[in-house]
């Protein structure tokens, strides 16, 4: 079976505007978008640029717009899409570096802003800090995030407001706020209580649809806003 990948190309050194280019590829059962892209680069056009690393949906490098929806190229099978022509574009809301490669720096800067690390102030013995299964269950979903950036790239608020933290960063803040071992809840809540924080979410649920790991960032965002409000009143 054949399929056509319609890829948005842009090389800042040569092109003034982005343009679409079609590539016909062979598809078998189980062929992913990433397999198709590797086929294109290997056999049809060596100039195509895209990021990829693990090919098994755990590194989060190959996120892109697949048929106008953010997702992982290695986690989307071509036959599943049921379309003859598949449009591939760079992630929305990020600066394009070349072809399907975008500048993820602002995304990671926002992630760093919410202190994505464990803060443990009280001195403990040199043993580990234990956690019960119930305590762990609160964060068991949030820790599966692979930071691919699909959720933020799907968020209309994120496209139009460059300061908005975005679902990924807020989910990371949530992951530490609900962690029983973490002791920086107040600082983190103050960060996401910013004018560009949790209260800017418009509940469009694009992030939930886009997440390849089936996480629900909107639930995390509302949980944090409830925490902020219950601390205030």
């Amino acid at each position: 079976m054949k399929a056509i990948l319609r890829i948005k190309r842009f090389d800042p050194e040569k092109d003034r505007k982005a343009y679409n280019q079609d590539y016909e590829i062979d598809v078998q059962e189980g062929t992913t978008i990433l397999d198709g892209l590797i086929q294109v680069r290997g056999e049809l056009d060596g100039t195509l640029a895209f990021r990829r690393s693990c090919r098994s949906a755990i590194c989060g490098s190959c996120s892109m717009m697949i048929n106008r929806m953010a997702g992982l190229a290695c986690y989307t099978q071509i036959q599943e899409l049921r379309s003859k022509v598949i449009t591939l574009e760079p992630l929305r809301g990020y600066q394009v570096i070349r072809d399907l490669v975008v500048d993820m720096e602002p995304f990671f800067a926002k992630l760093k802003a919410v202190m994505p690390y464990m803060v443990h102030k009280t001195p403990t013995s040199d043993r580990e800090v234990p956690q019960s299964q119930e305590e762990h269950r609160l964060l068991s979903e949030a820790i599966t995030c692979i930071l691919c950036g699909s959720c933020s790239a799907s968020c209309p608020r994120y496209w139009h407001d460059e300061n908005y933290l975005g679902p990924a960063a807020i989910l990371k803040a949530y992951r530490f706020v609900v962690d029983s071992r973490d002791e920086a809840e107040e600082e983190r809540l103050a960060i996401v209580n910013d004018p560009s924080g949790v209260f800017r979410c418009r509940k469009i649920f694009n992030c939930v649809e886009a997440c390849p790991k089936k996480i629900n960032p909107t639930e995390a965002i509302t949980a944090l806003s409830r925490k902020i409000l219950s601390n205030k009143f």
């Binding site: 048929n67 106008r68 929806m69 574009e89 929305r92 469009i204 649920f205 694009n206 649809e209």
Partner: peptide, 9 residues
């Protein structure tokens, strides 16, 4: 127009 529509949209 550049993004797929869902029920939430």
């Amino acid at each position: 127009t550049k993004y797929a529509w869902h029920s939430g949209t």
